[in-house]
Amino acid sequence: MQQNMYSVVEVEKFIAEGRTLLLAGEEALLRQLPKGQWIGGTIPYFITPSEGGAVSQDKIFVTDISAVTASAITSVYDQNGLGKVYTDAEGSGFSFIILPATSPAHASFALNGPNYKDFGNRPLIGWVAGVHLSDLGKATPKVFDGSSGAAYEQEAVVMHVTLPPGKSVEVGIINIFEQGDGDMLTFAADGFSCTDVMVNGVKENFAEYITRNNLDTKLPLVADYYGALVNISFQSVDPGGEVKFYAPVFTGIRYKHAKAVSNYAASFGEQLRKSNLDGQNIVFSCNCILNYLYSELEGRKTDPFVGPITFGEIAYQLLNQTLVYMEVHDI
């Protein structure tokens, strides 16, 4: 499977050859591309095969999924239509979604995705598009539908892919974080922010709790979903006021603050070993901008994974500070 950085000219050639492509790169580059069987999202951060973590504003990260594509259709969903993402395109082998960060589609998917009709009836993987951190507030993340060439900043783009006979795909995650030994935290409402938290069942102001306990907000909250550890990353803490997150907390889910991770590479290697992945069958992967920043991944490799560095990762639902991947298997 081909995953690498290419110039606009090289990507134009791939599109002309009729390849099916998942693209990530700067808006100015994606806007130059001809129509074809591709979808894309904006981001300038990547883990590349040659350099590891890198910022590139003149090349596009290409994931060529032609070998696992018998046919594909691309759909654009607004926040109200996203609930059909599992029921549209019946017979598809998997769906690949890209959402623009902070868009209505992003917020809607984050909050409602776990309750979509037929949740999980086929693999759903993808990422949240972003911008260079120096452009925050100046540029808007965008997603592209290559079949029309159109760019969107409010909607999600989804490629529904029918697999060739004899192929199956799996979505997985690598999460270096695990629940710490501290308090059990629950929330009274679903949302990207909160004022209060229930600490072992007792209500208190969450910002004050964080301050008093000196919680490191570079470490996420971690929920245990039947053995799958799902992170919620902190965006900001307003003393005495709101705490904001990069993904919503949900009522009924029990969270704990993550254990400290002293060495990303060592923790990553440990989780990789536990996953028994050999890397040969990986079709796509992406990792979180917060892992890139907090673990200082620039110039470092995360073999066997490469791909865009994202403002959110999607493995059926929105995740934070997590590496997401898709493998293909012969059946």
């Binding site: 776990p114 949740f119 997985g172 039947y226 799958a228 799902v230 889910i253 059926y316 639902q317």
Partner: peptide, 15 residues
């Protein structure tokens, strides 16, 4: 279990 979608679903429905 190993299947991620089922684990995410069960994380909600068991509770």
């Amino acid at each position: 279990l190993k299947f991620l979608a089922a684990k995410i679903l069960l994380g909600r429905v068991v509770r």
